[in-house]
């Protein structure tokens, strides 16, 4: 872009001081171009006029709606912070509980049934006059074998 082009633009718009404009006024090519533009310009302006803004208030409505939308989340900032803190606290407690359950030593857990001293799967007697039943007591952590219809167990059997 040269100064000549700048000057030409200004001359075309009638903004160039007369002293500088003289060289264009004496140039037939420049004069022809000015004439061409002066003919085309009104046609362009008339033919390209933008359509009228049919619903101007629509712009206001939409912009103000958007502003209100943007404002809403920032209003309850305090509540939002509190909610986040509560959520973070609960999440921490849950995580700690899970970790504790996973890594808690077995000795701290509630004993299961298999840890009793003995477990009776079935109890029956060969003699029909003798009945045998068993039950375990969770409170005492023991198993009771209840025998009816027999003499005292021989000393040799007590060990078994």
């Amino acid at each position: 872009m040269t100064d000549k082009t700048h000057d030409f633009t200004q001359w075309l718009d009638g903004k160039l001081p007369p002293a500088q404009a003289a060289r264009f006024e004496a140039d037939p090519e420049a004069l022809a171009e000015r004439e061409a533009w002066n003919q085309l310009r009104p046609t362009l302006v008339a033919g390209l006029a933008p359509p009228p803004l049919l619903h101007p208030d629509f712009i206001n409505t939409k912009v103000l709606e958007a502003i209100e939308r943007d404002r809403k989340p920032s209003r309850p900032a305090g509540n939002s912070l509190l909610r986040r803190l509560v959520f973070a606290g609960l999440a921490s407690i849950s995580t700690a509980a899970v970790i504790t359950l996973i890594f808690l030593p077995d000795s701290f857990r509630r004993p299961s049934e298999s840890e009793f001293i003995s477990q009776v799967i079935s109890a029956r007697a060969g003699n029909p006059k003798v009945s045998v039943s068993s039950f375990h007591t969770q409170d005492d952590r023991g198993v009771v074998i209840w025998i009816e219809g027999t003499k005292p167990i021989p000393a040799s059997e007590l060990v078994r």
Binding site: T5, H6, T9, Q10
Partner: peptide, 17 residues
């Protein structure tokens, strides 16, 4: 830049039309 854009835009419009 403004004067340059005006110059070339006018030239192009004149040549197209």
């Amino acid at each position: 830049t403004v004067m340059s854009r005006l110059h070339y835009a006018r030239k192009k419009l004149q040549s197209l039309l």
